Amino acid sequence: MRADYHMHFEKGSYDENWVEGFFQQAQRLGMDEIGISEHSHTFPEFKELYYKDLILDDSYIGKFQQQWLKTNKFKYTIDEYFAFMAKLKKKHNVKTGIEVCNFSDQDAVGKILKEYPFDYVIGSVHFLNGWAYDSSEIMAQWDTQDLNDVYEWYTQEIEKMAAAGHYDVLGHPYNIRLFHYIPEFDATPYLLRAVAALKKANMVVDINTGTYYRYPIAEITPYYKFMSVASKEGLPIVVTSDAHKPEDCGAYHDEAVTYARSYGYKTTIRFTGRNREVVPLE
């Protein structure tokens, strides 16, 4: 099955004419099904958690992140999201997902998620100690970090999310390579810990092309060393584009499938109402 479950409407609005482009592109690429996974920062239900976890002081990081939280964030409730998706489901084969950041208060996250019938929930590490490390505007912070610390922090966040039990998929694993800060040390011990946590939590790996076409690293995430460990442990996968605009739906899907097949993968996961079906990888 050809599917793409990691996409966002945030660059536009809940306008049927604008989002129709995602479905048109999916049709052009022969996609059998797509899913929308709106970021948790779309929804005011998560607002307090962002203000609790992010650095928001007078540092250059804090000032940027203060403005980030005020720009195109928290503009639709989760109920409004489901109402809009219900309209789309009348015309299209589409699943309703969500991508949730690695908040410190996982109990609060669980209380929010349990109220809604998502088809799947992606958990993604987007912050390290309150720093939005994937923001190019504050990329200079990378020059001040020890990569051993970064890998330790990132791995700890995966372990915390997996232990919480709220998530079906880990989004873009180890995208900490995105600005081409590559460690000289062997990161395998970190990867083994992360994969063990994911396996225990029965989570799926997101093979994500967003880092290939949107970031300097220009590689599909997760990178080859993680894929080697994950495949040996039999972790299931989905192939996604992380599209933020219609023309990126399904971007580099065939390349990602080829990448997955090189590690022995022949199947992917189809989600419906948090239930899974193993289907052929196409």
Rank of each mutant, 00 (worst) to 15 (best):
V195C: 12
G62P: 09
N17D: 14
G110H: 08
Y51C: 07
T267S: 11
D248H: 13
F9N: 03
E99Q: 01
E247S: 14
F179S: 01
D32L: 08
R193K: 15
G97Y: 02
K47I: 07
L191V: 13
S262H: 14
F84M: 00
D248M: 13
V257S: 13
V257K: 12
H41R: 13
E219L: 11
K200D: 13
E38C: 15
E137P: 00
T209V: 08
D143K: 14
M139F: 02
Y213A: 09
I34K: 09
S262D: 14
Y154K: 01
A163S: 10
G97A: 04
T268C: 07
Y174F: 13
R214V: 07
D168N: 10
D105W: 03
K200G: 07
A132M: 14
L54S: 05
A162D: 01
A3L: 03
F74Y: 15
Y81T: 03
G171L: 01
A140L: 08
D146E: 11
Q156L: 12
L235C: 08
Q65F: 12
G273L: 07
R274F: 04
A163W: 03
E38W: 09
W153A: 10
A108S: 12
Y116K: 00
H39W: 15
V19W: 06
R28A: 15
V150K: 02
R274C: 05
T144Q: 13
M85W: 00
Q106S: 10
G35M: 10
N72D: 10
T272W: 09
D107N: 14
N72I: 01
K90M: 08
V229F: 10
A86T: 15
L192D: 10
N208E: 07
W18A: 10
G35R: 09
E38H: 11
Y5F: 14
K47E: 14
N148H: 15
T268W: 06
Y5G: 00
H92Y: 15
K266A: 14
N202G: 15
A163V: 02
D79M: 03
Y174E: 04
I36K: 07
K70T: 12
R193F: 04
L69F: 03
V278C: 06
D53E: 13
N93V: 13
N72Y: 08
T268A: 09
I61Q: 06
S124C: 08
H166K: 01
G165C: 01
P280N: 06
S13R: 13
Q156A: 12
L147R: 00
F84E: 03
R274I: 04
E115W: 00
Q141N: 09
G12D: 04
L54K: 06
Q156S: 11
A163T: 05
H92F: 14
N208H: 07
D134S: 10
K199S: 08
V279T: 07
V229G: 07
A196C: 05
N72S: 11
A243I: 10
Y116F: 15
A86R: 15
Y263L: 03
T188Q: 05
G264F: 05
